[in-house]
Design a binder for these strands. Structure first.
Lengths: 138, 138
DNA sequence: ACCCAGATTTAGACCTAGTCCAAATTCAGA
DNA sequence: TCTGAATTTGGACTAGGTCTAAATCTGGGT
């Protein structure tokens, strides 16, 4: 079902039931889940999956570049399966919803003079504000 | 010595020895300390200061807008006393050093079409790369 | 189809960062 | 100086995450 699983196999990943369900949970959702949320959802598909395995698997997916770790609030890290398209995040300051926003043309270009000699390899942008729901209703 | 303390007093802050040393630690350093680092340095000036007080005080400084909380790595939050000038961060992916970089003119303007109805109130940009030291030496 | 070495999973102990609480202390205005 | 409210304290507690050694699986070779 998922090209994610195919890519993983192509990279020589040993395919286990646990990894399958973790990948499946991430693949199906377009949200930004915490590790514990992934564990809970994976547990519905494979009841005996352990927390450690979920953490291991998420770490591997991140290392493989298939998933991105985002920390928008200093609390739990969230795992973003949308790693293949460059994008930034829009975070609601009230309900903490996160939306992906496609990267624009100018992003990531810091003027030479402001680089302090750093060799820049990436940029993360987090926009904060109120989402439509939180602007209107409660 | 510090205009920070003056601003705090003007805002009706009750001035205690503990708050004084926390403000002093932040004021003197241009680095991005964790709460525990602040606690350690404050403890050199006022040995009996408690961890809880350091956390309380940092929280108040953040609420007052005098200090900014940054989480560039999903580990401990860091406290940035440079809250008065808009700026972004340059983080070395190897040694984890953080440098402030002044905000540029175009920052924070997300095209209308990409806002998904959010009322944007702020933007944080984190550039990642290798600092000069890590590019050359080890 | 079966074996086996090495990869993977597991439970649970452990760790770090941070919060919370009720009691004790301290500040500052009258 | 007195006094009430604000602040501080230590220590228990929580969340999120890491680590370990033992048990279990996976898949290539035969």
């Amino acid at each position: 079902m998922s090209d994610l699983l195919e890519r993983l196999r192509d990279r020589g990943w040993r395919l286990t039931a646990q990894r399958r369900v973790v990948a499946e949970v991430l693949n199906g959702e377009h949200v930004h889940l915490t590790a514990d949320e992934v564990h809970a959802r994976a547990g519905r598909l494979l009841p005996e999956i352990s927390r450690a395995t979920v953490y291991n698997t998420l770490g591997e997916l991140v290392a493989l570049g298939e998933v991105i770790e985002v920390t928008t609030d200093g609390r739990a890290k969230r795992y973003d399966p949308n790693a293949r398209k460059a994008h930034h995040h829009l975070v609601c300051t009230r309900c903490l919803t996160i939306r992906d926003v496609p990267a624009g043309a100018g992003d990531g270009t810091l003027p030479e003079d402001d680089r302090f000699g750093f060799a820049i390899s990436g940029v993360e942008i987090t926009y904060r504000g109120l989402c439509p729901d939180c602007q209107s209703g409660a």
